[in-house]
Amino acid sequence: MSKPDLPATSGKYDVFQAIADPTRRSLLQLLIDQELPVTVISGHFPMSRTAVSKHLRILAEAGLVKERKVGRETRYHLASDPLLELKQWLAYYERHWENKLNLLKRYVESESESENNSESDE
């Protein structure tokens, strides 16, 4: 069984590095259904606008957010396509988790049957 082919990232940060930080995951959630300027985005976080901008830059380098100029303002929105790389990676390991859960289920069910059989023998 071979690992899935994953696309190479062109940015300084890849999707995995970008979403490793909980603040960046929160930023992605905030941008799911809306396009927002950094001034509005920074109001949702207990950090400076500069810090929020740094997180947005990392997400942009990973391809997870896109910028759009509207007048003098830069607005950010989610670009979800790079998340497919994460989905493919997780799907590969999901088979392993399912196998382990199925083995655990069979073990628990067999233990339960053993207990029921021993109780009926008494």
Rank of each mutant, 00 (worst) to 15 (best):
Y107A: 12
P37H: 15
A79I: 04
E119Y: 03
N99C: 12
W97Y: 08
T23W: 13
Y76W: 11
S80P: 03
Q17K: 09
P4I: 04
M47I: 03
Y107L: 11
K3Q: 13
L90T: 11
W89Y: 14
E94Q: 07
H44C: 06
T23M: 07
T23D: 09
H44T: 13
K12N: 10
S118I: 03
A20S: 08
V15E: 10
R68M: 14
N102K: 12
T9C: 13
R49F: 11
E98Q: 05
L28Y: 05
A91C: 07
L101H: 02
K105T: 00
D14Y: 01
K100H: 01
K87Q: 14
E115S: 00
K66A: 05
A8G: 00
E94P: 05
S80K: 04
I19S: 06
R75V: 06
A79D: 12
K3I: 08
Y107W: 07
L86V: 14
L31K: 03
H96Q: 10
E35D: 14
S42K: 07
S110P: 03
Q88V: 13
L27H: 06
M1V: 11
R72L: 05
D14T: 07
Y92C: 08
R24S: 02
H55Q: 08
V38T: 10
H44V: 10
Q88S: 13
R24W: 00
L101S: 01
S2E: 14
E115P: 00
K66F: 02
P46M: 09
V108Y: 14
P7S: 15
R95Y: 09
L103E: 15
L104A: 04
V40C: 02
S53H: 04
D14I: 06
H96A: 09
S53V: 01
V40A: 08
Y76H: 05
E98Y: 02
L36A: 13
T74H: 05
S114Q: 13
P46S: 12
A91V: 04
E61T: 06
S114V: 10
S120P: 00
Q29H: 10
S118R: 05
S2P: 08
Y93H: 08
L84M: 12
N102E: 15
R95N: 06
L78T: 08
E111G: 11
Q29Y: 11
Q17Y: 06
L90F: 09
Y107I: 10
N99V: 14
E98H: 03
Q34P: 11
F16P: 01
E35L: 09
E61H: 06
E98W: 02
A8C: 00
L59D: 00
V40N: 06
